[in-house]
Amino acid sequence: MRSARSLLLGLLVLLSSLSASAATCKGKFANPITDICWSCVFPIYIAGAKINPFQQEDAHIVGGNPACWCGNPPKIGVKVAFWEPLRRVDVVREPFCMASLGGIKMDPGFDAPAHGRSKTQAQTQSSFYQAHWYIDPEIFVLQAVLDNGCLENLSFDVAYLTELDPLWNDDELTRILNPDVYLFANIPAQAACAADCVAATAGFSNNLFYWCAGCQGPLYPLNGNVGAHVGGVQASSIIVQRLTAKLHREGLMWGAHGEGGLCGYYPIPLMDKTAYKYQMLYPIPQTRGSPSKISPPQDWIGRCCQPFGRTTAIWGAGREFPFEGEDFVYQIFRKRNCCQGAVKFGG
């Protein structure tokens, strides 16, 4: 009888440990209607006319003649601009945990570094996360606008897993991508990030401080090692920025803004921080901000997305909680300037 009871107790302990292990991967399929901050698409410019009912922030305003012309393919048209929701990022503790796909766990047959936190000699907390990069052009996927050359015409897909990247958890190997990190491994360079924090909180980050991720800390190294972990929202936000910068450096993300983007995409190895906004999708969708009584232009507190680098103290409170709220999913918006063709030549 005692042996049977011991066996039953052992089975219960084993089952509880297995269920606890399986439950560490959490996530949610985002509702494209209710979970996306659609107001972040604004402001929209059409032939110089500005449409901005939600008073959203903007950068890379292309002025001048509202008409435009492109040579390949030859076309004439009008200038349009908007913020396109086109990528999604998981920032997770457990390797191969696909938070955007409802929290399923992939099993490729090998291990990868898992999340961890530790104290440095200076008593600051550091952490490590894995990340997943999804192709997610929401406007095209939902077919809200059909046959438009200004939209990225791709389907939803998993494009990049950091678990398969040997550089993602190794600071030494990562220097292959960012050898300029040696220029900024000093106190004055790191102190300059305070100025970038101020700029990002008031508007957009300053590209002059390209080694900074605004209020989140240093952008380098371009991997999952967060040297100054303040909280999960802050740490996951810097991971989003680092992965975006890393893919630009590898030639896997291109620019689409400014005069250069009117006729197509172009390589930009050094990420332009002012060309991106982002919002949280999980664990708590960031679809509306807290009310603001501050008059314009400092009325961004009530908005549901923010530029790279803005302090998470404004919008991140209560968005991290134990167990199901320690992995994160973000939607990325990229600025798009485009020549909307009215007339095409030669086909």
Rank of each mutant, 00 (worst) to 15 (best):
Lys28Trp: 09
Gln125Arg: 09
Tyr45Arg: 11
Ile284Ala: 10
Ser292Pro: 07
Trp254Ala: 12
Gln279Val: 06
Lys277Glu: 02
Val141Thr: 15
Cys338Gly: 11
Val233Ala: 02
Ala185Cys: 14
Phe128Pro: 02
Pro297Ala: 07
Arg303Lys: 15
Ala317Trp: 04
Leu247Ala: 02
Asn225Asp: 12
Leu142Ser: 15
Glu138Gln: 12
Val41Tyr: 02
Leu270His: 01
Pro53Asp: 10
Ile51His: 14
Leu86Ser: 08
Pro166Ser: 09
Leu142Thr: 12
Phe110Trp: 00
Gly217Thr: 01
Tyr134Val: 01
Asn169Arg: 02
His257Ser: 14
Leu9Met: 01
Leu177His: 11
Pro269Ile: 03
Leu8Ala: 02
Ile268Leu: 15
Ser100Pro: 01
Asn148Asp: 12
Val41Met: 10
Asn206Phe: 00
Lys293Phe: 14
Arg242Ile: 03
Thr312Lys: 04
Asp170Ala: 03
Thr124Met: 15
Gly302Phe: 07
Leu270Ile: 06
His257Cys: 07
Phe140Pro: 03
Gln125Trp: 10
Phe209Thr: 06
Tyr129Phe: 10
Ser126Gly: 09
Asp171Lys: 13
Phe156Gln: 09
Asn186Trp: 12
Ala194Lys: 08
Phe156Tyr: 15
Tyr282His: 01
Pro291Phe: 09
Thr120His: 12
Gly325Pro: 02
Cys305Asn: 01
Asp272Glu: 08
Tyr265Lys: 12
Ile294Asp: 12
Val41Lys: 10
Ser21Gly: 03
Ala131Cys: 05
Ala99Tyr: 00
Arg2Ile: 06
Cys40Leu: 06
Ala81Val: 03
Val343Glu: 05
Gly346Thr: 07
Asp58Ser: 14
Leu222Cys: 08
Leu183Asn: 14
Ala23Pro: 03
Asp299Phe: 04
Glu84Ile: 05
Gly325Cys: 02
Asp170Arg: 08
Arg117Met: 14
Asp170Gly: 08
Pro66Met: 06
Lys28Gln: 09
Gly102Asp: 00
Pro218Met: 05
Leu15Trp: 02
Tyr129Trp: 09
Val233Lys: 02
Ala144Asn: 15
Gly102Cys: 00
Gln216Met: 13
Val92Ala: 02
Pro267Gly: 04
